[in-house]
Nucleic acid binder design. Sequence first.
DNA 1: CCGCATCCATGACATGTGTCATGGCCGTAA
DNA 2: TTACGGCCATGACACATGTCATGGATGCGG
Lengths: 200, 200
Amino acid sequence: MIRVLLADDEGMIRSALAALLRLEPDIEVVAECADGAEAVATAERVRPDVCLLDLEMPHLDGVQVTERLNRTLATRCVIVTRHARPGVLRRALASGAAGFLPKSRSADEVAAVIRRVAAGGRYVDPEIAADALSDERSPLTDRELDVLRAGRRGETTGQIARTLSLAPGTVRNHISAVLGKLAVDSRQQAVFLAEERGWI
Amino acid sequence: MIRVLLADDEGMIRSALAALLRLEPDIEVVAECADGAEAVATAERVRPDVCLLDLEMPHLDGVQVTERLNRTLATRCVIVTRHARPGVLRRALASGAAGFLPKSRSADEVAAVIRRVAAGGRYVDPEIAADALSDERSPLTDRELDVLRAGRRGETTGQIARTLSLAPGTVRNHISAVLGKLAVDSRQQAVFLAEERGWI
DNA sequence: CCGCATCCATGACATGTGTCATGGCCGTAA
DNA sequence: TTACGGCCATGACACATGTCATGGATGCGG
């Protein structure tokens, strides 16, 4: 019997997957969680064999949950996401995830992936994997990513500078470099592009 | 037997809901579509009793699909969405939708809502409905919304002015009014807020 | 050790952006 | 009709933002 923990902030898909997995004879859904923090706490208590984690969740995202669980438990983590980009896949694998499944795939595949991962194997969506092999890594430096992240919601340069403890001029300089590298005109366009590519 | 069409661009949730609905003895899933245009075309061909439409879809969103179908068919439409806000509910009902269900609800409720709507009733999520009664409508004028939409992706004022055939100063003026009304500091923060409230 | 490259931080300068006051164009009420 | 209020469009001004040149710190290879 494979004991599974499910975490997704969208109740409808979480309950639908749970209902489908309960139909499988060799799979038992032992927990359902609505956010990342809850997933970590519950996993440490019930010690599931496999965690199926949505990437986009409040408080802690799927990658952060995977990182934490891998430090303390033997649980195998599968990350499921709506925005499956090479950059996201990279981050997921770097965090120690055993599986990566985009939400564009059918729900039928979920049980198969869980079995494979529970048996010690790995599963990565072949289409995204192919993209990841041929794509360019983020051309942005660490600090540039920090600045971009801090300005994700349209924050003003002053606010960004304050949260990063920098001079406003420095922030502007980093932004300028980013705009050049990404070939866009405004900070916000850069944010959208970086999010789309899975770089932040 | 209730004949149902399912439309959602996210394959996993679409197939999961289809599988669950097929377990119901009185419901038949006659079509699954991945975008709005496909949903319209298919619905006109198979004439389902009920359409379960995701709001966020490529090409045509759930509201637009509902508008079109209500002009030509007797189909009853239920709109399902991740971002359930009063503004979105308003748009959905204005388009002639018979049901409104946020994705935060459990998948169990879907079959019940479909039955209710198929029987000629309406269903609106009670929580969102309560919010909608006590909320303020968008304080923004039509033109202000146009400008906001045109700048949704961080476009520069010049670009916005060109797409709307306006003087740059005019664009800035509208933006300025929006910032005042929404009490935020930057154009992009205004975009986020308006999107969150379902105004654009 | 000494270039050399890369990243980070900064300040001066030009350009873009938000604020404000103004005027035109409808509708509606007196 | 006239007056009023709303929405829209515009240009001048102050300020925030992006560009550029510069200097310090670190790491790598000759």
